[in-house]
Structures are given as structure tokens and as C-alpha cells.
């Protein structure tokens, strides 16, 4: 099976591992991620105002270019921006009209493309049972705290990925690769996000609470799908830190495709 793939700007630079292991693991599971031609950065945050058009065009372009199949993203933030943009194209007629008038696509776009986060691909297309069956090196005995952060799941009614207050997709993923999930009460609280640019103290406080909670619950390591979460947890959280990995790296390790 071939899916369109939107890697995002950070996965081409600081978060190369998130991208590289996502592709290698997908291949091992029978899925090819075909990178879109000429995709542009989504901007990292969805601008919530209805009258804001320009900042959403790169996402619409990626969506419209994928309408013959489905679009896969792996960065939490890209996933958030692209799904929210798709929802607006589908449900906000005035916004969609303005965008379509501006873009002059061969055929107007109205949110037809199905968007998958990579984890949804594993759960809904491959199936976590099939992932488990393909595991060659189970991560036995590893206690892993899933860190959802905020952008992977919220707003829940738009992203429709999992229950935003009591999610299980990452825990199911952890079980599929043979490890044991550890549930931390801070798994869906914010790490401080982009505020790390101008307010390091805030990022330290927020990411520190997330890290400390995972430590207290007895985790050996944490996983995330977001480059900014990984940065805040590894760089800005104070004190002793657990290692933090992209979930795709552990997947590649379990599937035996990590060089």
C-alpha cells in the first residue's frame, strides 16, 4: 500500500530520526510513504481565526494533492495543523470558498482527503496485532511512559484520534512492541511548547513537571511524536532526566530495521 506522506520541516533537520525510522518501519510493515512533491512548512500552529487564509494554504495544497488516496503525517504539530485545516475546508463554507477562489485548483477542494497520523495508520490500517506479530526484537521489560502532549490529541472533536482525556493509542503501541506502558498523570499536559523561545523558565517548569511525573511512576524512558516535546523534555526539564525517544525509533528497533 502506498500513502502520501507529509514529513514537515523539522523532520528534515533536527528530527531526522522521527522521519527515517517512520519510513523504514512502514516499509517493514508493507506500507510505502510517498513524500509529496513540493510540500511547504505548515507553520507549526493552526491559526484559529476564521478570517485567516494565507497561513493555511500550504496545508490545503498538501491535502488537495493527496485526494486520490490518504495523507500521512508523523509530527504531532503537522498532524494538528493539517487536520484542523482539513476540518475547516470541510465544515466552514465561507473559508473554503475564499481558499478555493484564491487557489484556483483544477477542482475545488472541500476536505475530501483522509488524514492519518502515523499512529492511526498503525492502529487502523496495519492493526496493532499485526505490528506485534512483525516484532523481531520485543522491548521486553522496558517500562515506557507515553507522552501525548497537547497537539497530538486536541482538539479532540476535530482530530478524532483518541479520547483526549484518557487516551490509549500510545499505550497500545507500547504493548505491541513488547514493552510495558507506564501511565503518568501529566501525559496529556503541555510541556511549554514554543514558549521555550522567549520564556525558558516556563518551559523548564512545564517540561519538568512532565518529566518528574514519569520518573515518579517508575518509567525507564519516555516516548513522543513531537520534536518540540522532545526538545523541551531533554533540554529544558531541570534535574536528572529519563531518556526520551521518538516512538518511531523504538518501533524500528523492535521490527529489526534500525541500523
Amino acid at each position: 500500500m502506498v500513502f502520501h506522506y507529509y514529513p514537515g520541516c523539522t523532520l528534515k533537520t533536527k528530527a531526522i530520526d522521527l522521519d527515517k525510522y517512520a519510513r523504514a518501519s512502514a516499509e517493514a510493515l508493507g506500507i510505502t510513504l510517498a513524500e509529496l512533491d513540493n510540500w511547504q512548512c505548515c507553520g507549526g500552529a493552526f491559526t484559529m481565526a476564521k478570517d485567516e487564509i494565507a497561513t493555511k494554504l500550504s496545508s490545503v495544497r498538501a491535502l488537495a494533492d493527496s485526494r486520490d488516496s490518504a495523507l500521512v503525517t508523523v509530527c504531532s504539530a503537522c498532524h494538528n495543523v493539517i487536520k484542523q485545516t482539513n476540518d475547516a475546508m470541510k465544515n466552514d463554507a465561507e473559508f473554503a470558498m475564499k481558499v478555493n477562489n484564491y487557489m484556483q485548483l483544477d477542482e475545488p477542494y472541500h476536505g475530501e482527503t483522509k488524514v492519518y497520523h502515523y499512529l492511526e495508520l498503525l492502529r487502523d490500517v496495519v492493526g496493532f496485532d499485526k505490528v506485534a506479530a512483525a516484532v523481531k526484537n520485543p522491548l521486553k521489560g522496558k517500562k515506557i511512559a507515553a507522552y501525548y502532549g497537547c497537539l497530538l490529541l486536541r482538539p479532540g472533536k476535530v482530530l478524532q484520534m483518541d479520547n483526549p482525556e484518557n487516551p490509549q493509542i500510545l499505550e497500545d503501541f507500547i504493548r505491541a512492541i513488547g514493552a510495558t506502558p507506564v501511565i503518568s498523570p501529566y501525559r496529556n499536559e503541555c510541556c511549554g511548547g514554543y514558549m521555550a523561545t522567549e520564556d525558558k523558565a516556563l518551559a523548564a517548569k512545564k517540561s519538568g513537571a512532565v518529566m518528574d511525573s514519569a520518573k515518579e511512576m517508575g518509567a525507564d524512558m519516555m516516548i513522543t511524536a513531537c520534536p518540540l516535546c522532545l526538545y523541551n523534555l531533554t533540554k529544558n526539564a531541570p534535574g536528572e532526566k529519563l531518556p526520551v525517544y521518538y516512538f518511531t525509533e523504538l518501533l524500528a528497533e523492535a521490527l529489526g530495521v534500525k541500523e
Binding site: C9, T10, K14, A15, G44, A45, G193, Y194, T197, K235
Partner: peptide, 18 residues
């Protein structure tokens, strides 16, 4: 002044947007 070597583009791109 806001940058360090590990900061992902995502942080800056988002700050710019905000």
C-alpha cells in the same frame, strides 16, 4: 539570542506564527 543548537525549527516557526 533565542536559539540554541538543539532547538527544533518547529519552535521558531510556531513563535513566528504567534
Amino acid at each position: 539570542d533565542l536559539l540554541d543548537d538543539d532547538m527544533p525549527q518547529q519552535a521558531l516557526v510556531t513563535a513566528f506564527r504567534k
